[in-house]
Nucleic acid binder design. Structure first.
Lengths: 208, 208
DNA sequence: TTCCTTACGCTACGACCCGTAGCGTAACTG
DNA sequence: CAGTTACGCTACGGGTCGTAGCGTAAGGAA
């Protein structure tokens, strides 16, 4: 969450955890109302009923604040066992798409990624707060598919890692691109077509 | 380019086309040096040797200006016939990745997309200036693959359209996500793995 | 040429946000 | 109790925004 991580109980007045929650909630509300570019620290402070200085005591700036405010949304993603690899993929695609329908996620995600191209520490923050939390879904889905016999167990560990990263980029990238760049809906039909393509490949999907 | 499109020859002093070029060039230079968030209209005007008011006479704001400044970069993308669908896909992936290596493209692309989530006219501008220019590559690649017999000709026209859009989102999305979100390089090895996945599908790529 | 029209450069302006400093007060610890 | 840290508040210099106003430059039309 905040920048400093007070180890154990320190002396002095403790930070208000209620303020933390109020600030992050206010940040999301401001994202919905104003969007990324018009969101200001002053506005968030006012909404949260907190002094502006308090924000700067906990976050370096707008970028870090928004990452933390949005990160929690991505924890909602789950991967219930739907019985087959195809169903699991389609399920997670629709779930991710639903997340990107939320205006606070839409406007914030790409903006902080854009900022991170010139800010390494922000990039790491995004990775640990958002990206890595999604990647676990890929690993879980693969395990299940392997247990079902739909995918074989990979011999080489580094090959397996590279493959998981690849699949993650393909799934997340396609959904993000469809939603934010092409700006068209990810509905059940699209998810179905995408799943076929991912599982069967270009020629295979055409045949089936 | 600029907002107003003077139909035919009008009376009065004509707009300087040299200024147009200088402004767009200055915008790209400013993107390289300062990045999206720190780029200001004043800075661009100074670099271009132009008054700030001239910028506002031609573009509504930073968003529109940057879209136009970056759009030309995407015209460099080509799709030479490399003899097979796999080679064509791999080629365009590496080409697109090389484009995203350029700092002015990295920092601008995601930023304007983020802004476009709250600005319909900007979204249309991005679509016509950037997105649609890339989509032609997918259509061309499919035609060639069909002529080679690697893909069959689709019966239904709307099916074919949906499929092309899907493939476009998958390719562009994966490359963008790998480059900007995962922040890892798109090298020949990754492009090869991605191409296998796209052509053969999850199970097929594992086998091959 | 002389008018007319539009673009340009320049200056100045109010409005807003940034990020920080300083101060008195509040809360918790030993 | 004293010591330490967080908080709210105010104020500030510095910067950007987008626009208005002015005189001048560069074309077309009479």
């Amino acid at each position: 969450m905040s920048d400093t991580d007070p180890k154990a109980t320190r002396t002095g007045r403790p930070r208000s955890i209620a303020a933390d929650a109020a600030i992050l909630e206010a940040t999301r509300a401001s994202l919905v109302d104003l969007g990324w570019s018009k969101l200001t620290m002053s506005d968030v402070a006012t909404r949260a009923g907190v002094a502006k200085t308090t924000l700067y005591r906990r976050w370096a700036g707008k970028n870090e604040l928004v990452v933390d405010a949005v990160a929690v949304l991505f924890d909602e993603l789950e991967l219930p066992d739907r019985g087959s690899l195809a169903a699991d993929v389609q399920g997670v695609v629709l779930q991710f798409a639903a997340l990107l329908e939320r205006p606070e996620a839409r406007t914030a995600l790409m903006a902080v990624v854009a900022e991170s191209t010139r800010d390494d520490s922000l990039r790491h923050r995004i990775r640990s707060a958002i990206v890595d939390r999604q990647k676990r879904l890929v690993l879980l889905g693969r395990e299940r598919a392997q247990a079902r016999g739909e995918l074989r167990y990979e011999d080489d560990a580094s090959d397996a890692d590279r493959n998981a990263d690849l699949i993650f980029d393909v799934i997340a990238g396609a959904v993000v691109h469809r939603t934010l760049v092409s700006a068209e809906p990810v509905d059940a039909e699209w998810a179905s077509g995408f799943t076929s393509l991912l599982l069967l490949g270009l020629a295979g999907a055409q045949a089936g």
